[in-house]
Amino acid sequence: MKLRNRFLLATLVGLVLAGGVHIAAILAAPHFAQQDAFEKILPTLSAEQAQIISAPGGGNTWLPLPDPSVAVAACAFDLEDGPSRISAKTGAPFLSFSFHTKTDGVFFAVTDRAAVRGDLEIVIMTARQLDEARAAEDENDPSRDVRVVAPERRGFVIVRVAAPTPSLRAQAEEAAKAVSCTVDEEP
């Protein structure tokens, strides 16, 4: 083969491999991200209450494009220690939970419309913990927990509480901070 043809072949091989490198880099990016929301929320793992990450009013926050009319709080969970129970008292303003993992994105979200008598409570568990909970359940007195299976062991919950007017900001922040994230003891 002539040198020129070999050069063209090498270029072609390079381009095809570049496609592979591109795909691999995109797929790997969430796994290796150091500055993503998960890494920033992870230090709050041991907290029993949600921690404010963006106070209403848009003060200092790492959250990109914060909405000044919404209080955002977060708590991290690790299902290794047992199912995680997220619970909030709901009031008039909008309140929502969304459940995220590092690499699998959002897996569940719920708003205060799903609250029962002013209580919104979700239990996150692994598929195995769900099986165990079902097996341990009393048939005559089934649990009323809303159970959600997480695709990954570790993740975080984002709590958003709206403050439709500036005067409600303090109240929204209090409501977001009052959300509890506790670990259910294994039976």
């Binding site: 991200a33 500055q35 993503d36 929301a37 920033k40 790492w62 959250l63 990109p64 494009l65 955002v72 977060a74 929502s96 969304s98 459940f99 995220h100 959002v106 569940f108 979200a109 719920v110 708003t111 984002i158 958003r160």
Partner: peptide, 9 residues
Amino acid sequence: GQVPLATGE
């Protein structure tokens, strides 16, 4: 480092 609004929110 974004936290997108979930579809249900």
